[in-house]
């Protein structure tokens, strides 16, 4: 990789995302990677390496990667980080930026559509309600207009192909 391909503004974009503020505090000790249960199984996910890549400005390599989506958000790294980088939140901030730049995994998109349309991650159909009433539980509805409105006003609708977001 050539030095001219690096984007020195990348790290600032990450620190501007909510949760990414503490990025620059990293002194690369590797406690995160040593704590990470995902890394123990699959070397493709390596938090220290991801942080270095962000600091170096490897924008495309990070944002279009599959590995940023491997974080299971267990917080093991965040709890142990001696510099309070808040790594789990940082990973979330990096994902937020990846989504802004057009990298939204299909599974994520599907879940958003469900929440938008029903206010829930799982549809409650007639079968579920039957199962519920057999267990002595009240019936539930599967729709929520407020959530649809929040999706439209915050622009969440745009990426899942809904109405244009109003923003603020």
């Amino acid at each position: 990789m050539e030095i001219t391909e690096l984007d020195p503004t990348f790290k600032f974009d990450v620190t501007r995302e909510p949760g990414g503020e503490q990025l620059m505090r990293c002194f690369a000790c590797g406690t995160c990677t040593a704590s990470c249960p995902v890394r123990e199984i699959d070397e493709k996910f390596n938090p220290r390496r991801i942080i270095r890549m962000v600091l170096l400005g490897m924008r495309e390599e990070v944002l279009s990667s599959q590995f940023i989506w491997l974080c299971s958000t267990c917080y093991a790294c965040q709890e142990r980080c001696p510099q309070d980088v808040r790594i789990t939140e940082l990973m979330s901030a990096i994902k937020n930026l990846a989504v802004k730049e057009g990298h939204l995994p299909a599974a994520y998109k599907m879940q958003l559509e469900l929440i938008r349309n029903m206010g829930r991650l799982y549809e409650i159909d007639e079968f579920d309600n039957k199962k519920r009433s057999k267990a002595g539980l009240p019936e539930l509805e599967s729709t929520n207009e407020d959530v649809k409105k929040i999706f439209v006003m915050t622009g969440a609708d745009r990426l899942i192909g809904g109405e244009e977001g109003g923003g603020e």
Partner: peptide, 16 residues
Amino acid sequence: TCCPDPIYFKARNKEQ
């Protein structure tokens, strides 16, 4: 409604 979930939804856009 959905809380919404702290993994998928939060990774999509934290303020939403």
